[in-house]
Computed example of a mutant assay.
Amino acid sequence: MFNEDVWPSSFDDRDIDNIIWEEIQGSESRGDLIFYLLHRPQKAQHREEAQARLKILETVDRTPVGYARAVPRIRALAEQGDPNAMFHMGKLHVLGIGVPQDMVSAVAWYEKAIARGEMRACCNLGWIYLYGFGVISVNKQEAFRLLSLGAENGMYIAKASLGLMFLAGDGVPVDQQRGLQLLRESFEEGYTNAGNHLADAYFTGKFFPADKKAGHEWLSKVAATGDEKAMGILGFYLVAGSYGQTDVGRGVMLLEQATEKEYMPAYLWLGNFYRRGLGVTRDLDKAREWFEKGAEAGSHECQKALDEMMGEKVSPHIPGSSSIH
């Protein structure tokens, strides 16, 4: 909940990103590169370079070296009143990047950032109180206050969190209509995963009677945005005939599009469909082709499936097919 790329595009962390990259770009520590990818400053400019270096770096040392030099520079900005730097000091203490993990310090930095109008800090601190984290106990009332403040100031992910709270009656009275409305608004404002939450709610009937048609409609809306997970799951459902709808052609197309975005389960599902002849004509050559593509992309499950094809009897069951959304 602290490293999602979910913030409005108006946030710009390139000043923080520049400080960090100056300190880690020549580092031989895998830890510096891993933590950089985990930290995810908004509009970070060096993610592809960091990923490429990780692939060729021979050292196994995961102790961050450059980050330990970057943190005092970020702290100096925070102490001068920079709310962006305050937010990142909070996040670094939550994740334990360049400093020991310290939730008390994290909360203090987030509170300072909020006092300066940093709405991302409202969300992160709201989630800390919503779920409890480390030594920080659950405080639903404070979580609701902070997430409401974020939602009122353009944080569409905060609206989704509030929507789920109202649906579940999590710290607030159950209000299904308000919960659904907040999730719809969150999706319309740009938080794609709010649509996944809506689809899941309609499919599972967790909060109200299940509505398979509405579930498919919402999952289709999310897939239409280019979200690879939604594309893959909807493709699976349409090929397998899950939740009352079958459209094999569209399902296969969506699964193939999901593999183009390297959504790993889609490789496995396509391979298994062809391997077992479920929804499509059984074709072991195509099954092997999809497993090979998945294994090459880094899927251990696809590699395992390839190994299993070397003489094992095929079972008609797809592992995990009963509940994947």
Rank of each mutant, 00 (worst) to 15 (best):
L182E: 06
M165K: 04
E28W: 03
M253V: 06
V107F: 05
G81R: 10
T59C: 02
Q177V: 12
T225M: 00
K91L: 10
F11C: 04
H325K: 11
G132P: 06
L238G: 03
G251L: 00
S137L: 11
L234C: 00
Q51G: 15
A108I: 00
G244M: 06
E185N: 03
D285K: 09
K221M: 08
D285Q: 14
A199K: 05
K293Q: 12
T246S: 11
C123W: 10
A214E: 15
V248G: 03
L57P: 03
A297Q: 11
D102F: 04
D15V: 02
D17H: 06
A106Q: 10
L130R: 15
N272A: 09
Q45T: 15
F87A: 00
H317E: 14
L125A: 07
G249R: 15
S9L: 13
D13R: 02
A194I: 01
N193Y: 11
L77H: 03
N124Q: 13
L38E: 15
C302I: 01
L268R: 14
L198Q: 13
P8Q: 04
A158Q: 01
N139G: 06
D82C: 03
K221P: 01
G241I: 05
I19V: 12
K261N: 08
D12S: 05
S27Y: 01
L54F: 09
G31K: 08
G195Q: 12
Y243A: 03
E188S: 15
R250E: 15
A160G: 12
K212G: 02
R73I: 00
R53E: 08
Y191F: 05
E296N: 07
D15P: 00
D285W: 05
